[in-house]
């Protein structure tokens, strides 16, 4: 274990993984309970086009991903406001991003390997910029939740009543979409575009089996996310398998493990 911690890349992977998992665990309940589970997937795939374009134009991929994720998030929000079905709007931007990415790959051969790391995640090659962004993101989300927790829960419970209660609900919802987009980008570094939904959705699915309160769900989701990520990184090192897939498999295991108390209760 000590040997593992002596490597710089592992220190960065564990620290970055912890920060990203913490952020995803906090955002996850709000994403799932607002029925936005697919939004993360849509934004991630939309970012694929942005990242590919960024690599082609020589823009730092994470910056290109940040910009495209925010644009993707707001495009979905706008399309839904224009009465397009939510899942159809997500499908639209998802297809656009992947289509753009494929065209760019076709145009510029040579960075396919680099792009591949964004598809499946690359926790073991996190840079200091990634860590700095993950710290900033976590701080931003904690501050946001401290400020808008009540309104966020209220609008997850009932949008109409929440808007009646406070004028800031609409503003909070807009900031929330922005933060989902940013969370997606940092999750891409951990598990990649293809598995980003797992980090944003499964922690809440685990927590819902174990907690009956909102606060409990938030805490359990965060714990599950951090546990799966840290154990996943360590296990992947010893088993010599990719960390992103290992993290997702652990989240699955935790999900099935979380059913046990329910099954025991039902049996007794």
């Amino acid at each position: 274990m000590l040997e593992l911690l002596s490597y710089g890349f592992m220190q960065k992977a564990l620290l970055g993984g912890f920060l990203i998992a913490f952020t995803c665990g906090l955002m996850s309940p709000f994403i799932v309970l607002r029925r936005l589970s697919l939004l993360g997937d849509g934004i991630a795939h939309f970012s694929f086009g942005g990242i590919a374009l960024g690599l082609l134009l020589g823009i730092e991929p994470i910056i290109a991903a940040l910009i495209s994720a925010v644009v993707g998030g707001f495009v979905v929000q706008k399309l839904v406001k224009k009465n397009l079905y939510g899942d159809a709007a997500i499908s639209l931007i998802l297809s656009f991003g992947v289509g753009l990415g494929i065209i760019v790959i076709g145009l510029a051969r040579g960075f396919n390997v680099n792009l591949f790391s964004y598809l499946i995640g690359s926790l073991l090659s996190l840079s200091y910029l990634d860590i700095a962004l993950a710290v900033a993101m976590l701080v931003l989300i904690v501050l946001f939740l401290v400020w808008g927790y009540k309104q966020l829960v209220f609008s997850s419970f009932n949008q109409e009543l929440a808007e009646l209660r406070s004028k800031k609900t609409i503003f909070i919802n807009t900031v929330f979409i922005l933060l989902v987009a940013l969370t997606v980008v940092i999750s891409i570094r951990a598990v990649g575009i293809l598995l980003v939904s797992a980090m944003l959705v499964i922690p809440t699915l685990i927590a819902l089996q174990l907690s009956k309160s909102f606060k409990g769900t938030l805490v359990m989701s965060t714990i599950a996310s951090i546990l799966a990520t840290l154990i996943g990184i360590i296990a992947s090192y010893y088993l010599n398998i990719p960390p992103s897939g290992t993290i997702v498999m652990l989240l699955f295991l935790l999900f099935f493990g979380a059913q046990i108390p329910k099954l025991v209760r039902a049996a007794s």
Partner: peptide
Amino acid sequence: KLFPATVDEILALN
């Protein structure tokens, strides 16, 4: 039906 909030948590929203 899965919404995880206790009665007290909901009432405290207002």
